[in-house]
Design a protein around this nucleic acid. Structure first.
Lengths: 385, 385
DNA sequence: TTGAAAGCGCTAACAC
DNA sequence: GTGTTAGCGCTTTCAA
């Protein structure tokens, strides 16, 4: 007939319904007579069996050894004989054993999961950085969990909270524009969760950072414009609350000064997106003494400038040179292809991840602060002479 | 006197050694005499105290109640008196208690974490979809762990493996171009981990899918070209191994036929990127009977076409109309702004996530298969009349 | 209304 | 070399 024993074993199954299921199964086992009832019973049984993944205990039982031996075999512990290891590993593979990292993380207090907070995924810059992060993490066997702040302080705080609950072993952050309070990051550090900032760093928190060498990037770009004959170079920058924008402006100014050109505020504008540039550019072009070159803090802005310049019947780069920043995929798509400062976004992400892993692996707060600077380089295309 | 060997590498040993450390600390406390020794002792103590996050047990001890009462209070269980709840919740908040989701997931066998496999993050389409996925997941309190396949079958398989080990409660997939074997996805389903495919679906696996209505998108776009007076419309499409590309081509062909235009293979090209389009477009333009419109399967290709057309001195849209597909941010940046089919990438991601959550919450395999189709709509800008 | 106790799957100190 | 045992932090049954 029906072996009632099978119902005692799978007790562990479905979430919290030990008892109801057990009762249900027992009742059914006593009552079932018709084929249909037996089929239902079987369904329950199969469901119970299926939902449960193979565990170390199962392997131990099957191989008639102890769970610790299985555990040690799977982690290639030197104490275990090769013979035993081979048997265990073979069995595990054959039966598609998947170690439960939840359990092992809980036990070892070390979760190979790192959290990444970024303002917005949909962005050439951030998605590229994220790609670098993910590839690097994957290489080292870490998992990446993401949280986008959407430039919102509350969401950023919530992301940090979630990461702590998930017991991530480290966090990578590029802070939102609206964040002016940094307690949530400090809390991570206080809890010995290493944090590395990238690009949009947070100067108030003492920890590793990776930034792009904005100053040098701007400097060489502007110098290139000058050496190719530009005399009057306009600057389109971001509002100066973020350090990034100031650095680029300073690189621009210093390049002018070092080359004996005047820094003229009337051709320096706060303008860092496509739409704004569409209105600002014509103003500059209609000055009595219009610029013969534009340096923009990102590629979208540079492309807006190009479109306006072209629409005025001016030639690029003969009449006007344009240089962008980021070296995004846009540079290859516009016409003519845009000269731009390569920020090496992918490398930036990979570097940040490396720093973080370093900190994780060396025990949190002991090492010196690392302040990595990613060198930029100018990619000259057809919008400069 | 003091065995300094103990202090050589305290970090690594900290892992799970409460007891040894406690003993060690006690022993030392009796032995320590010099200041230096006391400092070492302090370091160990602080480390022990700090590294350990507050647990339910700690709260229980502090409040002199049982751990179960704390657990129930925090999850607002009806059995617990309001008074107790208030005390517990207040204490938890004040001391920044962070529930350990590793432990609770292990216990309840349900991990609010979902895995996402995408070919490449750096892509307007995929990053936007991912953004939709993340926002939707966050709304429902789920965490998102990502794995990019980089269009590589092996990496995709490895991602699936990782997700299973992490005991994710569901997986969202857009398959890599190189994937022609689907056992890894089937394994997820066999283990009752719900899977939802989006965009690059996998027809061999019976599960929910979300796709864009490519056929209708292409159809209406081409019809728009026709009604605005275009008579000879070229098609630039993808190689036809993916269902997506065929659907778009069929939409194109049907729109022509229904409007009494001939389907002319000589102006239908396999060309789906910027570089290729730069060489293919001039060929078509120099035909004795050149196209007066181009319909491309993505925006980059469309923009390449535009650049070539403009360089030939032809006017857009007066001489030649161009229409893209995706409605990426590129459409606003090119000149003139590009008419394109909006795929609603963000919504696609959010929808996929919703379907997955549905399945997760309703118990895996019980519901019908859902086959959601995201409607496209044509965004008319300045490259069509 | 609360507490005691068991156990999720895994690891590792300790014993043999 | 291998087994025994005691947890990691949490939830939930059962008992009181």
């Amino acid at each position: 007939m029906l072996d009632k024993g099978i119902f005692k074993e799978p007790k562990k199954e479905l979430k919290c319904l030990y008892k109801p299921l057990e009762i249900c199964a027992n009742v059914l086992a006593n009552v079932c007579t018709t084929d249909m009832e037996l089929i239902y019973l079987r369904i329950i049984y199969v469901k119970l069996m299926k939902k449960r993944q193979l565990t170390i205990k199962d392997i131990a039982k099957a191989l008639n050894i102890s769970a610790s031996t299985v555990s040690r075999s799977l982690s290639d512990h030197p104490d275990i004989s090769q013979e035993t290891k081979d048997i265990v590993v073979a069995y595990a593979k054959k039966n598609k054993y998947k170690p439960n990292v939840l359990a092992s993380s809980l036990r070892t207090q070390n979760n190979k999961m790192i959290g990444v907070i970024i303002p917005e995924i949909v962005h050439y810059f951030f998605s590229t950085v994220l790609s670098g992060i993910e590839d690097e993490a994957e290489k080292e066997g870490y998992r990446v969990i993401i949280s986008q702040s959407n430039e919102d302080y509350e969401k950023e705080v919530k992301g940090v909270q979630t990461f702590q609950e998930a017991r991530v072993c480290g966090v990578l952050v590029s802070v939102s524009k609206k964040t002016h309070q940094y307690d949530h990051f400090q809390e991570l550090i206080d809890n010995e969760i290493p944090v590395v900032f990238f690009d949009r760093i947070c100067t108030g928190i003492l920890t590793d950072r990776v930034v792009v060498d904005d100053y040098a990037g701007a400097y060489t770009a502007v110098e290139h414009l000058i050496t190719t004959g530009c005399k009057r170079i306009a600057f389109f920058g971001s509002p100066s609350n973020l350090p990034i924008s100031n650095n680029r402006r300073m690189g621009y100014e210093d390049a002018l000064r070092k080359n004996g050109l005047e820094v003229d505020k009337s051709i320096m504008k706060i303008c860092d997106n496509y739409q704004e540039a569409l209105t600002v550019t014509p103003e500059l072009l209609s000055l009595p003494n219009p610029p013969d070159a534009f340096f923009a803090v990102n590629d979208e802005t540079a492309i807006a400038i190009m479109n306006i310049v072209k629409s005025k019947g001016l030639k690029i780069p003969d009449d006007v040179s344009v240089c962008g920043f980021t070296n995004s995929s846009l540079t290859e798509i516009c016409d003519p292809p845009l000269t731009s400062v390569d920020q090496h976004c992918y490398e930036l992400g990979a570097s940040a991840m490396k720093l973080l892993l370093n900190r994780i692996q060396s025990g949190t707060n002991d090492t010196q602060l690392n302040n990595k600077i990613i060198k930029t380089n100018l990619v000259v295309r057809k919008t400069t002479r």
